[in-house]
Simulated scan of single mutants.
Amino acid sequence: MLNQKELLDGNYDFSTYIDPTSNKYKWRVQTYNQEYSRLKKFLPSKGRLMDIGCGLGTFSELFGDDWEKYGIELSDYAKSVATQKGINFDIKACEEGSFDLIVFRGSLHYMEPLEILSYSNKMLKPGGIIAFLAAPNTSSIYYKLFNDLPMLEKDIKHFLISDKELRKILEEMNMVMLEINKPYLNTPYARPIRDFGCFIINLFGARLKFPFYGNMFELFARKNAGDKGL
């Protein structure tokens, strides 16, 4: 059994990611499956995947054995777990324009967006898909009123962006928008009556943290088939 020190790697606590008895674990797995279901309709049955900020590899694992899976991850502990799930971290061995799918799941806001998006565009095949899941959204009413989002850690620099800003950047890269969603009501985290009550209380100066419509977005786009991204 791993102790707390081993679980806390790179200032990120993975303990709730491996405890199947916890609600956080169950909700996360349910959310992964919902996201995968919305994404897979745009994908071929097999291909090459890059998961940027892949964590323990749980989301990438949903793609099965027909997908060649690569990951980018800072945590040594997470990489060791993901490697056991068949995720390869030797990205340097991959040529430009060789990925059918690039995924950012809850990770884009930790990176300088223009730099990582330019890199992703180069690595994506013409006709390939780029997907952003569980992305904090600065166009949400929560953020506009409270200048904060409940999923953001303190003392960590975040590169925040809205769904509209990301769409504009991708379209300038000659990508075609496929779908933009703001998942909330169908997620296991939503408690609409409770969350609306918290929203009202915050209007009077409280600083409660709670899920709310528009706080997170997901965006799927396709690289123009005639664009090599170079």
Results as ranks from 00 to 15, higher is better:
A206K: 12
P126L: 06
L133S: 02
S98E: 05
N3F: 12
N137I: 00
D13T: 08
D148P: 05
L62P: 06
R222F: 05
M216R: 09
D227K: 09
Y70W: 07
L219M: 11
A221E: 00
Y12W: 14
G86Y: 02
R38W: 11
K168E: 11
P20S: 10
L219S: 03
E96A: 15
L178V: 08
L230A: 14
V29K: 05
S120Q: 04
F217S: 00
S120R: 01
S75I: 07
L170H: 02
L160N: 03
L56K: 03
N121R: 09
I200F: 04
R105H: 07
D9W: 07
N11I: 07
S15G: 07
D148G: 10
L62Q: 11
L56Y: 04
I169Y: 06
D90G: 12
L166P: 01
L149G: 02
E172I: 12
G64Q: 07
P183E: 08
L39G: 01
K228T: 11
S107P: 05
Y189C: 07
K209Q: 13
D76T: 14
A221W: 00
N202R: 08
A131S: 10
E73M: 02
S22K: 05
N33M: 14
Y12R: 07
R222H: 08
L8N: 11
K144Y: 07
G53N: 00
A134S: 13
N224L: 08
D195P: 06
F63K: 00
Q34S: 13
P192V: 10
P188W: 03
Y77I: 04
N147E: 15
F220Y: 14
N181M: 05
G97L: 04
Q4T: 11
L160P: 05
P211R: 00
N186F: 15
I141M: 13
I102Y: 01
Y110V: 02
L133P: 02
N224I: 08
K5Y: 07
